[in-house]
Nucleic acid binder design. Structure first.
Lengths: 214, 214, 214, 214
DNA sequence: TACTAAGCGAGACGGTACGTCGCGTCTTCTT
DNA sequence: AAGAAGACGCGACGTACCGTCTCGCTTAGTA
C-alpha cells in the first residue's frame, strides 16, 4: 500500500523488508480510526450500488463521521482513495481440493461465477473506466486479480506435471480461456449464453477443444 | 433508434414498417444539424479520452455550438444521449473469407484485437459502469456487440455444417471462449499473457483443447 | 450604482445622460427579484447585528432563497455586495424648518443622534475597516453621508447670508464640528460625555466658542 | 493587563501593588519569548494592513514561530488576543509646553493629525466593528484613548483656571469638539475639508465660535 | 403575406459537490 | 507542564455543472 502524504514527505512502499526507520514525523499522528472509517464508508457505498460518480467525497466524509480535510489529507484524488479501498479488499480465496484437475478447475470457475456477489466483484465495473487511465489503480486491481489467478495457475501446472494436461500447455492462455466466459457473463455481455453448468461446460470445452477430429 | 421527445409526445420505434403517419408536428422542425453536432461532440470527447463523469452536458453543448436546452429537448438524461451516441457508431464489420474456418476465426480474433483503436473500442471501458445499471444503454451496447459476434457465429455454424467442428459444439460458449482472451488483453487485465500471435493461439487452443489424451 | 458583470462586458455608469443603447445582452436577463432578495438579506442581517465576518455568502444566499452562483454572478467580492447594499439604503433626510438657524442645527444634530437606530447607522461600524481599504466602498458610503451633510451646509449658508453667522465662517469645518461629538458619542468613544441635551450644547458651543473674552 | 489562563486558574490584575505571591506553578514556566513573538506578530500584521478577518490565528502562529496551542493557552478568543495587542501599544504621548493654552491645543490637535501613522492609529479602523460588540476590547481601546485625551483635559482645565477659557466650559464637550474634525479627516470621512492648518483653524473656531454677534 | 407555434443560441436560475482554508481542540514527542 | 507540530471535526469559501427557465430570434406550415 502506498502512502500519499501532503506535508509530510513520506512515500514509503512496503517492498523493502528493512525499512530505513524514518525519523518519526512530528505532530499528532494520523488517526487509524479515521482511516478505517473512510475506507469502510467507501466500500459500503460501492457495495450498496452507489455509482462512482455519485460517490461524493462529501458523502463519504459524512458517512465516516469525518471532516473532508481528513480525506484530502490522506488521498490527493478520488482515484487514490478508490485504489486504497480496492487494495483493502481481501476476499477469501477458493482453495482447490488437489485431487482432480477437472474438479478443481470447475470449483474455481464456479467461485468466479459467484464473485459477482463479493465486494471485489461489485467494485469491478465501477472501476473499469478508471482502470484504463490510472496506472496505479490498475496495478492495485490487477494485484488483487492475480492473487486469484495464481490459484488457477497452480492447478494447471499440477495438471501438466502429473500428465493430465499437455506438456506444452500455455498456462496464461488457459487461464484467460477459463476465466473469460464466466467473467463476460458476469458483465452481462453474453446474454445468449446459457449459464446452466457453465463452469463445467467451460472447463470441459477448454480441456477437449471443439475440433471434430480428435 | 428511439426518439425521446419532451413536448411532443412521440415515442416512435422504427420497428413497425408502416408508421401511422403522425400529423406532422407544427412549428419549426428540429434541426438535424444540431442533432449531428451533439452526437459528434459526444463521440469526439469520448474518443479523446474524456471520462463519462467529466463529459458534462455543458461541455458537449459548447463544443457542439448548441444551447443546453437543445440537448435536453432531445434526450431526457445523459444516459439517453450516450445510448444514442453509442448506437450511432457503426464501425465496419470484418468479413471472413469463407474458405477455412480456422483462418476466418483468426481473422475475426485479430479484428477484435484491433478493436481497441475503433471508436466502439474506446467507448467500451467508459461505459462499463453505466452498462451495469442502465438497461437501455446495455441493450444499445449489446446490439452493437452482437452484430460483430453474429459474424463469428456464422463461421462456427458453417464449420459445424461442413464437419470441421464437432456437431455438438456449443456455439455461444465457443464465441465467448474465442473473444474472451483477446477482450481481456485489450482491457489490460491479462498482463502476463503474451500477445504475439495471440489470435492464432487462441483459435488453435479452442479448436484442440488442452487435455493430454486426445 | 455600478454594475459588476462577469461574462457580459457591461460596466455602465449612470453619469452620461444619453446612454448609447447597448445591444441588449443575449440570454435570459438577470432577475431583479433575486437581486432585491439578496440586497434585502444583507441589510436585514447587518441590521440584526451580524458581523461582517459572520455575514457569509452562504447565509445570504440561504436567507435570500438564492443560489450562491447568483450572488457571485453579480458581485465579484463581498465588498462589492456591501457597497451596493449600502448604496441602496436611502433613509429619509431630516428637513429643517428654515426659521431659526440654531433650531435647525439642533434638529439636525438630534437627527444624527438618532441615526444609530437607522439602517445606515448600524452599517457604519461594520464597514469601517473596509472603508479604509476599499475606495469604491468609501465612495459609496461618503455619497450617502454627504447627502445628509448637504442639509447642514444649506442651513449654515443660510445663516451666513442672513447675518446670523460670521461671513468668514468655514462651512466645512463647522459641519465637522457639529457632527463630530454626536458621531463620536454614537461610536461609544466618548463615554464621559453627558448626552443630555447634547445637541443643544454642541450647537451653542460651536456658535459662541469657549474663549473667555468675547 | 489581564492574564487569561486555562489550566492555571489565575486571573491576575496588575492593579494591586502587593500581589499575593501565587504558589509558583509547577512544570515548565510559560515562555515570555513566545508571548512577545505572538503580540509582535499580531501588531505587525495589523500595521501591514491585514484585515481583522484575515488575521488568522494560524497565520499569527506561523509568523511568530509558535504552535497554535500556545496561543490558545494564553488567550481564549481572538478578541482577547487583540485586546492585549492593543493594550501593549504605548505610543508616546505629546507633552504640551504649558505656556499658551492656544498653542498647547494646536500642538495636541497636530499630534492627533499625525496619529494616523502610529500603530494605534492604524489599529483603530480595524477594530471598529469589534469595539461595537466586545465590551472588553472597547474598554482596552478607550483606556488607551483616554490617556491621550487626559492631556487635553489638563490643558483645558488650566485654561479655565487661569481665566483664558470661560469658567463654565464643558470640558468633555470641548475635548470632543477639538478631536472630532481631525479624527474625522483621518478616517477620510470629510473629503471636502481643507486640511491646511486644520489644527489651528479647529482650535480658533472652537475658541471663538461662529456666531456673528460677539 | 401575415400569423403562429416550436426550435434555436444564450445564459440566468436554485441547487449540490468540489477541493481549500481556517477555526478551536486534540494528541503526539521534545524541552 | 509547556513547547512545536500537526491531525481532528466542522463549516464557509469561490467554482463548476446540474437540469430548468426565460429571453429575442429564426424557421417553418397555415391562414
Amino acid at each position: 500500500m502506498t502512502l500519499w502524504s501532503k506535508s509530510r514527505n513520506i512515500a514509503l512502499t512496503m517492498s523493502s523488508t528493512v525499512v530505513t526507520t524514518a525519523p518519526r514525523p512530528r505532530g499528532r499522528p494520523r488517526s487509524s480510526r479515521a482511516h478505517d472509517a473512510i475506507i469502510d464508508a467507501v466500500l459500503e457505498m460501492l457495495v450498496e450500488g452507489t455509482r462512482v460518480e455519485e460517490l461524493s467525497i462529501e458523502a463519504v466524509a459524512a458517512r465516516a463521521g469525518v471532516g473532508k480535510a481528513t480525506i484530502y489529507r490522506r488521498w490527493p484524488h478520488k482515484h487514490a482513495l478508490l485504489i486504497d479501498a480496492v487494495e483493502s479488499v481481501k476476499d477469501p480465496l477458493p482453495e482447490p481440493g488437489g485431487v482432480s484437475v477437472r474438479d478443481d478447475l470447475i470449483l474455481l470457475a464456479k467461485a468466479l461465477g459467484t464473485a459477482r456477489d463479493t465486494r471485489a466483484g461489485k467494485l469491478f465495473p465501477c472501476l473499469m473506466p478508471e482502470l484504463q487511465r490510472d496506472g496505479g489503480l490498475r496495478d492495485a486491481y490487477l494485484a488483487m486479480v492475480e492473487r486469484r489467478r495464481d490459484v488457477t495457475r497452480g492447478v494447471l501446472r499440477r495438471g501438466i506435471a502429473d500428465g493430465t494436461l499437455r506438456p506444452d500447455t500455455d498456462v496464461e492462455l488457459a487461464v484467460a480461456l477459463l476465466s473469460g466466459p464466466v467473467l463476460s457473463s458476469l458483465l452481462g455481455s453474453l446474454p445468449r449464453l446459457d449459464t446452466t453448468d457453465l463452469a463445467e461446460r467451460v472447463v470441459d470445452t477448454v480441456l477437449s477443444g471443439i475440433a471434430a477430429e480428435r
